[in-house]
Design a protein around this nucleic acid. Structure first.
Lengths: 339, 339
DNA sequence: CTGAAAGCGCTTACAG
DNA sequence: CTGAAAGCGCTTACAG
C-alpha cells in the first residue's frame, strides 16, 4: 500500500500522512494520533527506498573496518567495537553496514561503491590507512566520517576523530613496569597495525625512561596479530625468557594470550618470573585464566562519542571534533599489584 | 550527476546508459564499453536509492541473529558464522545488515521495521524462535528467508533451511565416548538454546545407548552460554569429577573452554582423568592450548548453500530446499585418539 | 494546519 | 538495438 492509497482510505491527504508519520509539528496532535493508529490498523509503513530517494537519507551508517581485518573471530577487539557500535546506534534508529576491505576488487573497493551509490549516510572509520583515492572520495561526496579508535597514519586537517591515546597507554605500561627494576623489559609488536603499534611502543619506552630504564631495541619481538603467531614468536625466544626475569608488554590482548600460552608451556612462572601486560581489554581475556593484566582502551567512552558526533555531522552540524581518550591500567593476575 | 545529465553529456539516451550500466544484452558491446569508460571518466554511478525504488531490490540482505545473542564477543560461533556469510556474500555484490533482537522495542522489533520498510531483499535467519507475529510478517510480505544452522523450534511447512544435524552431532559424541567404558558420561547443556541443546543431547544419549551405556539424567549439568558460567558450573561439580573418570560432552566450545578452566584449576588430568569434547569448532579453540576436541559443525558447507539459495529465492525461483548437514568429529588434545 | 503538485533518479514497456 | 515517456512511493515548497 502506498501513502496515497492509505491517505485516501483514511480520508486525509498524502501530505498529512507523510507529516504525521514523520512527526512533523505541522500536523495537529489529534490528527497525528488518528493517523498513527490507522497506520497500525492497516499495517501501513512508509517505503524507505522512496523516502531515501527524496530525502537523501538512508538511515544506515557504514563501519569501515581495517584492511588487515579478516574476521570478527580473528580480531576480537574489532568484534568488541562492533558490538558497542551496534548497541549504541540502536538508540538512533540507524542500521549498520560493515564494509570490509575487498582484496579481490580491482577498480572499486566496496567502500567506493557504497559511497558512490549513496548506500549510507556516513561512516565510522576504524581504518586510517585510507588511500589518497579514498580520501578524495570522502571529500568529493561530502560523506560525514568519524575516525575512531586507532590511528594508523597522519591525520589530515578537518577530520573528525575520537582516538584512543595509544602513546599514553604504552606510557602507563612503561611507568608501571619501570617500578620492577629487576625485570628485563620486552615489547611484542605486530606487523599489521604499524603506526599504532609504534605509538604504543614509544609511550612504553618513554614511561620506562622516566623510571630510569633504557629500553633496548633488541627487546622488541615481532609477530602477526593472532594468538598462534604470538605463541610461536615467544616460543622462539623462550630460552632467553627462561634465563632472566622479564616484564612483557604486548601490542594487544590477543598477542598476550599467545605469549601466555608459550610461557605456560615452558613452565615459566607468572608473574614471578615473567610479568605479562596486554592492551585493549577485550571481553575474552577476563573470561580466560589466568586473567591477563592489561591496558584498558575506553571503547565504552569512545564509541558513544563517535556515534553521537556522526549523527551531528549527518544533521549537517559542521563542527569538527577531535579527541584523544586516555586508556587506563587494569591489573589482574599476570602482573604484580601496584604497591 | 543524474543518468539523464550524464546521458546528455556523452550523447546517448538515459535508457541506453541504464542498459549499459546494468549489463543488458540490449546494448551493443561497443556502446556499452564506451559508456562504461565515460562513466569512469566522469565518475558517474547510478543512484542506488532510485534503483531500489524502481526495481524493488536493495542489494542488501539481513542476518537475523538469535534473541539470546548479545554480542559477537560473547557468542564466538555467531561471529564465525557472520564472518563466513560476509565472505560468501561479497561474491554476490550484496551488502549485509545485521538485525539484533531489540529488547527495548515495545511495538516494532527492528526485524519488523526492516521488513516493512523493505530495507533488505531477504533474510538469513539464525533464529528459529520467531514469534507468530514475525512468521506472519514473513508470509505477508513474501520476504525470501533461509533458515540456517541451529533449529530451535518446530519447522513449519515450506520454510527453506540448511541446518546442522545437531542430533547426529551428539550421536557422534555418544558413539565415541561409548567406547571408553570406564568413564562416566556427562553432558553440559545451556539455558539459552534449549531446542538445539536438547537435540544434541538426544543424539548423545542415543549414541551412548548403542554402545550399551545408559545415560543418567542426573549427569546433565546446566549453565549459560558463556565461559564464566560454564566454569562456575563445573566448579560446583568438581568433587564428583575428581572422584571418578568422566567423559564430558558440552553443548558448545565456549562451554568446553569454561569447563576446561575449572578442570585445570582443580588439577584434574586431561584426557587421563577427564575427557572433554566441545561442539561447533569455533576458530578460537584451535588457538587455545590444550586444543579441545570437538564436533565440527560444517559452517563452511552450510553458509554457501544458504547464501546461494537465498539468492535463488530473491531471483524468484520458488523452489523449497531443506537440508540437514552432518557434523563430524575432530579429535584433538582433550580426548583420546580413536583406536 | 492542510492539500495539490512537482520532482527525487532511476528502469522498462512500448514504439520504432 | 535505441529513445521518449511513464511511474516507482515518497517529501516538501507553495498556495490557501
Amino acid at each position: 500500500m502506498t501513502s496515497r492509497e492509505f491517505a485516501k482510505l483514511i480520508g486525509v491527504s498524502q501530505s498529512t500522512v507523510s507529516r504525521a508519520l514523520n512527526n512533523s509539528s505541522l500536523v495537529t496532535r489529534e490528527k497525528r494520533e488518528y493517523i498513527l493508529q490507522k497506520a497500525k490498523e492497516y499495517d501501513f509503513e512508509l517505503n524507505s527506498q522512496a523516502q531515501s530517494l527524496r530525502t537523501r537519507r538512508t538511515g544506515t551508517i557504514g563501519i569501515l573496518f581495517p584492511k588487515h581485518f579478516i574476521s570478527m573471530n580473528d580480531n576480537l577487539m574489532l568484534a568488541h567495537i562492533y558490538d558497542c557500535i551496534q548497541q549504541e546506534m540502536s538508540q538512533y534508529d540507524y542500521d549498520i553496514m560493515v564494509i570490509y576491505y575487498d582484496r579481490s576488487a580491482d577498480d572499486f573497493s566496496s567502500f567506493e561503491r557504497i559511497i558512490r551509490k549513496k548506500k549510507v549516510d556516513g561512516f565510522l572509520v576504524l581504518r586510517m590507512e585510507l588511500s589518497d583515492n579514498e580520501m578524495e572520495l570522502i571529500q568529493k561526496y561530502h560523506v560525514p566520517c568519524v575516525f575512531m579508535m586507532n590511528v594508523n597514519a597522519n591525520i589530515r586537517d578537518n577530520l573528525n576523530y575520537f582516538f584512543s591515546d595509544s602513546f599514553y597507554g604504552g606510557y602507563l605500561a612503561g611507568k608501571y613496569f619501570g617500578k620492577f627494576t629487576d625485570y628485563r623489559k620486552i615489547y611484542i609488536t605486530v606487523n599489521e597495525e604499524k603506526d599504532d603499534a609504534r605509538r604504543r611502543f614509544e609511550g612504553y619506552r618513554s614511561g620506562l625512561e622516566e623510571c630510569g630504564y633504557i629500553f633496548k631495541d633488541e627487546d622488541i619481538l615481532k609477530c602477526n596479530i593472532s594468538i598462534e603467531s604470538a605463541c610461536r614468536c615467544v616460543e622462539g625466544y623462550i630460552d632467553r625468557l627462561a634465563e632472566e626475569k622479564t616484564a612483557i608488554f604486548t601490542y594487544s590482548d590477543l598477542v598476550a594470550i599467545g605469549a601466555l600460552q608459550a610461557l605456560e608451556e615452558a613452565a615459566i612462572s607468572i608473574p614471578g618470573h615473567a610479568q605479562l601486560l596486554g592492551m585493549d581489554d577485550i571481553p575474552l581475556i577476563s573470561s580466560l585464566r589466568p586473567k591477563i593484566s592489561t591496558v584498558h582502551v575506553e571503547t565504552e567512552e569512545i564509541v558513544p562519542k563517535a556515534c553521537s558526533h556522526l549523527m551531528d555531522l549527518i544533521e549537517k552540524k559542521e563542527i569538527v571534533r577531535r579527541e584523544w581518550i586516555k586508556p587506563r591500567l587494569v591489573i589482574r593476575d599476570t602482573t604484580y599489584p601496584i604497591s
